[in-house]
Amino acid sequence: MLIAFCLAQVLVFNRVHVFNCVTPLLYVYFAIIFPRNYPKWAILLWCFTIGVIMDAFSNTPGVASASMTLIGVLQPILLELFLPRDADEKIKVSASVLGIGKFVTMSSILTFIFCLVFFTLEAFSFFDWIYWLESVVGSTILTLILIFTFECFRK
């Protein structure tokens, strides 16, 4: 599944530029759905690896890997905030397990932070801050729409 999503991102989604600034960054979905008992070092390693693969094929040197690594750090922290204290250790992150509201909130926070860091590092300046803001907000919304679409079909 990861390979299919990476190929879809590289071959299809990287070529989608709505209003010339909004690009779906669907690979952040993998950082969101790591289960609770997954080792934190492994989450960081997977997120960094996915980021490096995206950087290699998207011509964004270091941008995706830095953004994904930050999300890999934040995901276990946010997951603990959204889970009840007596939740099972082997709980998987999904809308059906967390509940729609909590999953939407957690996904929205992580996706917004990812897009904020991604486009800030990509622009590396705030010279054209309106374009930067449109890219961050638009890409966050489009990515969330795709994440929730895939989550509806996930078992």
Rank of each mutant, 00 (worst) to 15 (best):
L11H: 09
G138K: 05
I100N: 12
I77K: 09
F126N: 02
E134G: 00
V12G: 06
P39V: 04
E134C: 05
S135Y: 03
Q9N: 12
P35T: 12
F119G: 02
I147G: 04
I141S: 01
D55F: 08
F127Q: 06
F19M: 13
G99N: 11
W46M: 12
Y38W: 12
F48T: 14
L146S: 04
S94G: 15
I145C: 06
P39T: 05
F153M: 07
K40R: 14
D86A: 14
I43A: 10
F48N: 06
I147Y: 02
L74S: 09
F48E: 01
L79H: 08
Q9Y: 14
L74Q: 06
Q75M: 07
E122S: 05
F82Y: 15
F148Q: 11
I109N: 03
V104F: 15
T69V: 12
C6V: 15
S107T: 15
K90T: 14
C152W: 07
I100G: 05
S108P: 04
F48C: 11
T140W: 12
R36G: 01
D55C: 11
E134A: 07
I109L: 12
F5V: 13
V93S: 11
F103R: 08
E80R: 15
T120C: 11
F127W: 01
L26I: 15
G138F: 04
F150P: 00
I113K: 06
T149R: 00
P24E: 06
D86K: 15
Y38S: 05
L121V: 03
P39H: 08
N14I: 03
I50H: 07
W129H: 04
S125Q: 05
L11C: 11
C6F: 13
F48L: 14
Q75L: 05
K102F: 09
L110F: 06
D86F: 13
G99H: 13
I109V: 15
V93D: 10
W129L: 02
N59M: 10
G72T: 06
V18M: 11
T111L: 03
T120E: 03
L70V: 15
I77R: 08
S135F: 02
Y27S: 09
